[in-house]
Nucleic acid binder design. Sequence first.
DNA 1: CGACTTCTTGATGTAACTCAATCCCGGTGG
DNA 2: CCACCGGGATTGAGTTACATCAAGAAGTCG
Lengths: 231, 231
Amino acid sequence: MKLSKKKYGIENCYLSNHCLPEWLPAIEANKKIYEVKKGELVFKEGEPVEGIYFVYSGKLKVHKKWASDKELILRFATDGKILGHRGLSTNNTNYPISATALENSVVCYIDMNFFHCTLKVNTKFAYKLLMFFADELQESERKMRNIAHMSVKGRLAQTLISFKNQFGVNEDGSLALELSKQDVSSYIGATYETLFRILNELIEEKAIEVSKRSIKILDLAKVEDLATREI
Amino acid sequence: MKLSKKKYGIENCYLSNHCLPEWLPAIEANKKIYEVKKGELVFKEGEPVEGIYFVYSGKLKVHKKWASDKELILRFATDGKILGHRGLSTNNTNYPISATALENSVVCYIDMNFFHCTLKVNTKFAYKLLMFFADELQESERKMRNIAHMSVKGRLAQTLISFKNQFGVNEDGSLALELSKQDVSSYIGATYETLFRILNELIEEKAIEVSKRSIKILDLAKVEDLATREI
DNA sequence: CGACTTCTTGATGTAACTCAATCCCGGTGG
DNA sequence: CCACCGGGATTGAGTTACATCAAGAAGTCG
């Protein structure tokens, strides 16, 4: 991860979009823009929290380690999203999770001290962020219940629906998110092999179509049914 | 759940503890105190969000439904804690979870409109709440990973440790939280029978002692080991 | 073209769920 | 006071979904 030499504005950034206009110059003065290569780590679980990141472009995953080679992917972040906000806490000073770029990305870094100032000065932003956190918490707990009680097939169906909603589809109808099967399985909390078998089941049922790194939903009703029937 | 006739101050309440002193009269004027009987619902998943609650006394569980008879308990709330803050969100206007009293409790209700005002006026409180949400999110994601990858035994051990930290122990060393086995199993995301067997294993290993509705940790080192070894 | 991931599939193991039977205990009514 | 009842606690047996392991096929990159 290295400082970008190119100049980036502060247009497409959660922070600047919700701040007071008079605060923008301060942000401009304090931000740092980093270019992150595919596969590169933005920050790592256990490291001390130093700042917060806003995604300008690219795709990243937020994940929590497990044993030596396992992980659980908690969410994916694309442009306009926040990264590292889980480190926002006074008593816990280390990142509880890691963030890794899935493709070459550009992120905007804000020092934590300055960010805390921002929060205190921009009450509207703080309010906005609070709502964002409430949503994240809801989503997190929904996912937790699913992992606890739903079958892998149901979770996969839910994941497909949420990918569709979050990232949309390409012209050909495939999900606009290229993920390795490895990542998908880490996201739904299953092994690679299990995911593979379940994908095949769905293909046989003509519910989806898989090619290379992309997935297309053929029978949305069926997938939606699978995603909700067990709840 | 019915309005309390008794007068309650606003001392032991997350809201009043973190607000501007000059805002306290407004809170006083807007609060409603409810008495909740054991087993009674404070609010229910799916219902429209109308307000937020602060626990004065008692113990409650926050849970998410599943099928007809299953549930996942997300957390327990005792005095000083917040309830219903998951409903704090502009786009989602229904509670994503339910809250039920485990024993007779007293809660303080604040209308959501007034609460939003409070947030806008009391920036320090909003900030405090933001930190609280960050912590909740961390905890939620830690628990999610555990449910995804940890054995029931490991999760139980973690749960015992966290109960000890959150609720403390009685003079006799037993956890100061009386729960039915049903509730414990819903909290760790396992069935009643499985929990029972695992409890027995731990008893045979002389790690814990169980009587009626209380649990005592005998061998803390062992429980701590179980709680961390798989991570 | 060989080394090296990533994919695919089968075989096997097992933790945990499910269902059902029995046990235990407190309450209730005769 | 005791027999009876009901519901939670306990235990057992069977089933299943999923993980694990292993090994071959197929891309892919120098």
